[in-house]
Structures are given as structure tokens and as C-alpha cells.
């Protein structure tokens, strides 16, 4: 629209002003304060004084076995959870990428798990996983397997959380990848077929390269979300048994709001912020390079 005239500049300025003021006051200033806190020791539960200790909290992070464990659990969600969601989501998207009657109804039904609150997802799976009375163990028994202590066994419970997460978020991959697939023009498939390519060659040579930008966006968004996993941990296991299934966000929550170690909790949250900033940068860079789809 050319250069801004002076009067327009004022309008442009006043239009963005409220957003900038709100975001500054509830994100930037509090974040600066919490960065300062992350350099202090401050246990508000005991009425303790705030003492400046420099990078002590950050050093403590990596000698804290409980933190390392929560890091591992979160890593598992990324690797097994998001990994499965992608593979399952891609297969389903490929299956649904054809026209048949009732298709839009079926797609909608597939999306339901993702739309409802994670708290409700947690509820539903808490009932399903119940050791004595849950339908899942009943099914296992019927097929001759022994009951699994889904939520009460420390070597199983992290994976029970992942399974519920897969159920909840596979639809996200399905719908995003399906949108990507539908943006690929039909004549490209036909051209490849005419050239004598088989199904696999069409997929690996034509479909996947064109789908790649959407794949990157979908996986990165899921990775960012999965890194913050909290609700399912809180609803299904409360991090238990013991501390076996704690995620970073959940351990961070306990540190801040159960043990009231504000300094250490701030350092922990800054660690997560750094990781998210790194992932978000990759995401934004791939977005800016080409407008996706």
C-alpha cells in the first residue's frame, strides 16, 4: 500500500498498542523477574529470605537425579509418543485421502479425542486403566494375558501416559497431513503413474517431497506441545508411583507450588524456555523460508 501517511501511522500504532501493552505486562516483565529469581534461593513456604546465589540453581539441575528422570520421561514422550503419532497419523491420512461416501463424518469422528480437554482424556483413561475393574485388563484377561498394573507399576506408568497421549494427539497428525495431501494436485499422481511408477515410488518420489513442509510443521508443533506435557501426568499418575512418571513440567509444578522453592523452580522453567525457543526457531525459520501450502 506504499508508504505510510502520517495519519495512517497513528492509526497503525494505536491498533497494535493494546496487544503490545498486555503482552509486555503479562509476559516480558514477569519473565525478567523470574530470571532474576532463578539466580536466587527463595523458599517461600518456610518464610525464607531471598538470597542471591548466581548460577547455583542451574548447576543443581543436572545433579538432581529426579530432574534427570523427568527429562528422560519427557524424552520418551517425544520419541515414542510423537513418533507413533506421526507414523500412525501418516498412514491414516493416506488411507483417508480418497473420496468416498461419509468421508467427512469419519474424519470428524477421528478428531474427537483431540478436541476435548486433556483433563477429560485423563479421566477416561484413568477408568480404562483401572487395575481391578478397568475394561482394558478385562480384555487382556479374556485373551489369556495377565492383568497389567498400568498406573501403579513404575516401569509401565510412563508408557501408559504415552499411550493416552497417542490416542489424544494422533488426530492432529491425521488432519494436518491430510490437508497437506489434498493440496497436492491430482495430475502429479497421474503423471507419475503414466511414467510407470509403482505405489511406493509415487509415495517416495512425488508425495513425500511435496508433503515435507507440512510434515515439518506438524511434527514441530507436536514436539513443542509434548515437551510441555502436564495434564495427563497430573490426571493419570500424579507423577507416580513414587516419581517414576514425572515429566519436566510436572516436576517443575511440584517444585514451585508444592515445595515452594521459587528460585529452583524458576531455573527449571528457564531451562524449558531455552529448549522451546530453540525448537520454535527451527519452526519459524522453516515457516519463513516458504509459506507452507
Amino acid at each position: 500500500m506504499g508508504g505510510l501517511r502520517r495519519r495512517d501511522w497513528w492509526i497503525a500504532f494505536f491498533f497494535v498498542l493494546p496487544v503490545v501493552v498486555i503482552l509486555l505486562s503479562i509476559s516480558i516483565f514477569p519473565m525478567i523477574y523470574s530470571f532474576y529469581l532463578s539466580l536466587c534461593k527463595w523458599d517461600i513456604g518456610m518464610g525464607g529470605q531471598r538470597v542471591f546465589i548466581g548460577v547455583g540453581n542451574y548447576l543443581r539441575l543436572f545433579s538432581d537425579a529426579r530432574f534427570v528422570n523427568s527429562l528422560k520421561n519427557t524424552g520418551r514422550v517425544l520419541l515414542f509418543g510423537v513418533g507413533t503419532q506421526f507414523l500412525l497419523g501418516l498412514s491414516l491420512a493416506l488411507l483417508l485421502n480418497r473420496s468416498f461416501r461419509g468421508r467427512s463424518l469419519i474424519v470428524t469422528l477421528f478428531l474427537l479425542p483431540m478436541m476435548i480437554s486433556p483433563v477429560v482424556v485423563g479421566c477416561i483413561w484413568r477408568i480404562i486403566y483401572h487395575y481391578q475393574y478397568g475394561p482394558l485388563n478385562y480384555l487382556l484377561n479374556r485373551f489369556g494375558f495377565r492383568s497389567v498394573n498400568w498406573l501403579g507399576n513404575g516401569s509401565v506408568s510412563p508408557y501408559s501416559i504415552i499411550l493416552a497421549d497417542i490416542w489424544e494427539w494422533t488426530p492432529f497428525m491425521v488432519i494436518t497431513l491430510l490437508a497437506g495431501l489434498q493440496a497436492i494436485p491430482d495430475d502429479l499422481y497421474e503423471a507419475a503413474r503414466v511414467d510407470g511408477a509403482n505405489r511406493w515410488q509415487v509415495f517416495s518420489g512425488v508425495v513425500f517431497p511435496l508433503l515435507r513442509p507440512v510434515v515439518i510443521v506438524a511434527v514441530l508443533i507436536r514436539v513443542m506441545d509434548a515437551f510441555k506435557i502436564f495434564d495427563l501426568v497430573a490426571l493419570l499418575t500424579m507423577g507416580g508411583p513414587g516419581q517414576a512418571s514425572e515429566s519436566i513440567a510436572f516436576y517443575n509444578y511440584l517444585t514451585g507450588f508444592k515445595y515452594f522453592s521459587m528460585g529452583y523452580a524458576s531455573a527449571m522453567s528457564y531451562f524449558q524456555l531455552a529448549v522451546i525457543v530453540a525448537i520454535a526457531n527451527v519452526f519459524l525459520r522453516s515457516w519463513r523460508r516458504r509459506e507452507v501450502v
Binding site: P30, K228, A249, S269, L273
Partner: peptide, 14 residues
């Protein structure tokens, strides 16, 4: 994209 747990801590104090 900020992790909620990171922003809620200072907001709680605020």
C-alpha cells in the same frame, strides 16, 4: 509458544 509452566510461575507471584 512459551511453556505455560514457565510463564505461570512469575504470574503467580505477580
Amino acid at each position: 509458544m512459551m511453556p505455560p509452566i514457565a510463564s505461570v510461575l512469575p504470574l503467580f507471584l505477580f
